[in-house]
């Protein structure tokens, strides 16, 4: 395997990456390099440990007395399948990897397994951020999936079972507003498309894929 290049640029980016402060494009570029470079991954781990250590110095402060009971009530209320369990089938196939590594085309190849390493690092760095998925239906037929990542910026990635289009992606918010996310066409082996979104992922009710010759394909997000 060729010697990975771009260590210099990645090292520049690592402190901000560990702090979760890097923008989408820079983050994608750095993660792309990290996937191939164990030395930079170790650097990132070290930097993440530093960030953890710094996080721990915030002064402790007792919350209001009802805090504990309110947390327990929320947990009792929220007893439903966890996001992680809902995501597990997708994680196992490595589909989500594409989103985090920059949204390029996903193929079930060895590259996936290499990228899985960067995916794990990303989750570690972005721990606690929102990551979710919704099935995309054409009528009653499963047409693909939409993955949502809450970060800065937030991302959506579409993975489709078949090439096709053109599609116009439209976001429907929980407040009923619609936002045009752009158009895409998938040809040849390309099965995915991604975009950044301004809205928090938690405010998305549905994603529609409009097409000329048939009703919208729809993915419903249940938060």
């Amino acid at each position: 395997m060729a010697e990975p290049s771009g260590c210099g640029q990645a090292r520049e980016a690592i402190p901000e990456l560990a702090m979760g402060a890097l923008s989408g494009e820079e983050r994608a570029a750095a993660l792309g390099h990290l996937a191939d470079c164990p030395a930079c991954r170790r650097e990132l781990e070290e930097a993440t440990r530093m960030v953890d250590a710094l996080t721990s110095i915030a002064p402790a402060e007792e919350p209001p007395p009802s805090f504990e009971s309110r947390v327990l009530a929320r947990i009792a209320e929220a007893r439903r399948p966890s996001l992680l369990r809902r995501l597990t089938p997708y994680l196992a196939t490595g589909v989500v990897v594409g989103v985090l590594a920059g949204g390029f085309v996903w193929n079930a190849t060895e590259a996936d397994r290499r990228l899985a390493a960067s995916y794990r690092t990303t989750l570690e760095v972005a721990d606690g951020r929102y990551l979710t998925a919704a099935a995309l239906y054409s009528g009653r037929e499963l047409a693909g999936h939409v993955f949502g990542y809450q970060g800065s910026p937030s991302w959506l990635v579409f993975t489709m079972k078949k090439a096709g289009g053109p599609y116009q992606a439209v976001l429907v918010g929980v407040d009923g507003t619609t936002t045009d996310l752009g158009r895409f066409t998938l040809t040849g082996r390309q099965r995915s498309w991604s975009t950044t979104v301004d809205q928090p992922i938690g405010r998305i009710a549905e994603i529609h894929l409009r097409r000329a010759d048939a009703p919208d394909m729809v993915a419903g997000f249940h938060h």
Binding site: G20, R49, D52, T55, S56, A58, V71, R74, I75, A78, S82, L83, L84, R85, E124, A126, D127, G128, R129
Partner: peptide, 29 residues
């Protein structure tokens, strides 16, 4: 943060660091 910790408890990996570190990382984000 506590609700997320409960929800993602299965993903916690003690080899990666202490529970407190993990909980504070969630809180920070």
């Amino acid at each position: 943060a506590f609700v997320r910790a409960w929800r993602h408890a299965a993903a916690y990996d003690s080899r990666r660091g202490a529970v407190s570190t993990w909980l504070l990382a969630i809180t920070r984000n």
